[in-house]
Design a protein around this nucleic acid. Structure first.
Length: 577
RNA sequence: GCGCCCGUAGCUCAGCUGGAUAGAGCGCCGGACUUCGAAUCCGUAGGUCGUAGGUUCGAAUCCUACCGGGCGCGCCA
């Protein structure tokens, strides 16, 4: 559908070519009685060109060429332009989508090189349920940006360095029995971290040795580095296993851990000194980013080097920022992390700007998200009050999905049921994380996320399965596009088509806002319209072959859109369930 | 104390960057199956959009102040 182009052309003719780039603010109509779409630009533009909104809307409509696209155009209220699309144009637009592997989603005119920093679990800690958010949301954003043509560079900024390793290495030395054959088991490491932490908190001498140990490690002392490497290796194997289960795109080569920046940390300090930003405070090297105030209204210091000479995560983030600009040649850098780190990233970005380390055109985005809460609206914990292991959550998701599937379709062979349980269970977890506004805390609820009703992965996958089922019954190839003209015989078909042609706009909207839940809402509405369509428009029992082919083509298009949409969210489909 | 985020139906959430009469799902109540998978659909009821001002043709959306909740504030990450 070239509706926007028509509107822009009309605006240019009505008020001058310089307004061609004005966003027509084209949206689906607020009510079906108004038409199919509405353009809301006249009210805003009127002010800028000194016209009355309704007059301007009328002029734009007069300049609009409706041929072959609109069956009805009118002005309503203060200056809404209501558009009704011609049935034939709509059908032809859908047919074009059907033969387009990109489903109408056009690549961006100017591709950018975008670094997406996400997941970032910590070495020597098992992945926990809250790591899910960064991983799942980041992966979806990376997929969407890549799909619309950007060059995406994924970066997994794993926490493999820092003060806590002194304590871990000390504890490891105290307990050589934790190593079997020179290897460590990650299952042990979870408790191992807790124990080490307890020692550190309770034993001052242990704490002192731990701090000294960090310095040793950072100085490259051989024994410490070897122990550290064991911790890292054991952890990486665990992360890889989780990523594989989650169908996350992250690969080992996307890992650029904190330690990768070790050698450049002194350069960060030097570079800060070079631009005159480095200052001293109580023995530490600090930077005072503009616009940040501390408790007494004083400038707020970001410590980049401790009084003992050690570096902190702000230093590492600054080094990573420089690396992404200089070596990765990023046009845009996106950080997926907890909303609680908003201040930290705001300060890091500000320092990068003040230091002049990045051209102004580079965009820096912190994409924050809220916490995972239990049903009691408190941070999600086990019944015993402990942290929730991600691996256990995934196990339970699959078990629960398996039970639902067995109940609904006992005839499914066991092996296939397992595969379906995996797709549905993992999909449900990911979808529940993606489907609401990411900045809000979200309530983790098994029954809701695995429900076959409502805005859930099972509901969407089921809609897809229904499409596949019809293709199977008719012994038609789902992958091969049905090359039949689309006929509109019912309002439900029309409603479905109008939604299908919106796919491209929604995908781009997600890329602009970095809010995957908008795609979820779209897909949910698509599935709902599909079900309404099936209710009223039988495919196999269609009145005549041409109508049947039309409906089959439409079904296939919806199926492919669901599949693609879910893929952009990192969620698998199955053909039967 | 300062700063950031969030308050929308009983519950869980949308509301497309300021548009028309605020929408879903669950739950409640009532309908539709010799099914293309009812794993679905249709309908009823349910709202001072936290409160009060302001901005304007128009505010759930922007601004200000308050109220509630969450989080963050110098050598952890």
């Amino acid at each position: 559908m070239r509706i926007e182009e028509r509107l822009r052309a009309a605006v240019a003719r009505a008020v001058g070519a310089e307004h061609r780039e004005t966003d027509p603010l084209l949206r689906p109509a607020a009510q079906t009685s108004f038409g199919d779409f509405q353009a809301n630009l006249a009210m805003g533009l009127a002010k800028r060109v000194g016209a009355k909104p309704r007059d301007l809307a009328t002029r734009i409509v007069a300049a609009l060429e409706p041929e072959g696209l609109f069956s009805k155009v009118d002005v309503a209220g203060p200056g809404f332009i209501n558009l009704t699309v011609d049935d034939r144009a709509l059908a032809e637009a859908a047919a074009r989508l059907g033969s387009d592997p990109r489903l109408g989603v056009e690549p961006v005119p100017v591709p950018m090189r975008v670094v997406v920093d996400y997941s970032a679990p910590n070495v020597a800690k098992e992945m926990l349920v809250h790591h899910l958010r960064s991983t799942v949301i980041g992966d979806a954003i990376a997929r969407v940006l890549a799909f619309i043509g950007h060059e995406v560079i994924r970066q997994n900024h794993i926490g493999d360095w820092g003060t806590q390793f002194g304590m871990l290495l000390e504890y490891l030395d105290e307990h050589p029995e934790l190593r079997s054959g020179g290897r460590l088991e990650i299952g042990d490491l979870n408790a191992f971290y807790q124990e080490a932490k307890r020692r550190f908190d309770q034993d001052e001498d242990f704490a002192r040795r731990s701090r000294a140990r960090v310095v040793e490690l950072q100085a490259g002392e051989v024994h410490s580095v070897a122990s550290w490497q064991q911790l890292v290796d054991a952890s990486l194997a665990h992360f890889e296993a989780i990523y594989a289960r989650l169908d996350v795109l992250l690969e080992p080569e996307d890992i650029r851990a904190e330690s990768a920046y070790n050698d450049s940390l002194p350069q960060v300090i030097d570079a800060l000194a070079d631009v005159g930003l480095l200052e001293e405070s109580e023995g530490a090297r600090v930077v005072y980013p503009e616009g940040f105030k501390g408790k007494d209204g004083e400038p707020f210091p970001v410590i980049v080097r401790k009084s003992d000479g050690g570096y902190l995560y702000a230093t590492t983030d600054l080094a990573a920022a420089r690396f992404r600009v200089e070596k990765l040649r990023a046009d845009r850098v996106i950080y997926l992390s907890d909303a609680r780190q908003s201040d930290h990233f705001a300060m890091v970005f500000q320092i990068v700007r003040q230091a002049g380390w990045a051209p102004e055109r580079i965009r820096w985005d912190h994409v924050p998200f809220g916490s995972v809460l239990g049903p009691d609206r408190r941070p999600f914990k086990t019944r015993e009050g402990g942290t929730v292991r991600l691996a256990e959550v995934l196990d339970e998701a699959q078990h629960r999905a398996r039970r639902v599937i067995e109940e609904k379709n006992p005839s499914l062979p066991a092996a296939e049921a397992d595969e379906v349980a995996r797709a549905v269970g993992i999909g449900a977890i990911k979808y529940s994380d993606l489907s609401s506004d990411r900045v809000k805390d979200y309530v983790f609820d098994w029954d809701r996320m695995l429900s076959l009703e409502g805005n859930t992965a099972p509901y969407l996958i089921n809609a897809y399965v229904r499409v596949r089922s019809i293709f199977r019954k008719l012994e038609r190839e789902f992958e091969a596009p049905i090359d039949a003209p689309i006929q509109i015989t019912d309002p439900a078909e029309r409603a479905l088509l109008l939604h299908l042609v919106e796919f491209s706009r929604v995908v781009h909207l997600v890329a602009d806002t970095l809010e995957p839940h908008r795609l979820c809402t779209y897909l949910y509405e698509l599935a709902a319209r599909l079900h309404r369509f099936y209710e009223r428009c039988p495919v196999m029992r269609a009145p005549e072959p041409a109508v049947r082919e039309s409906r089959l083509a439409l079904s296939g298009l919806v199926g492919r859109t669901l599949e693609r949409g879910l893929d952009l969210l990192g969620i698998r489909v199955v053909s039967r369930m």
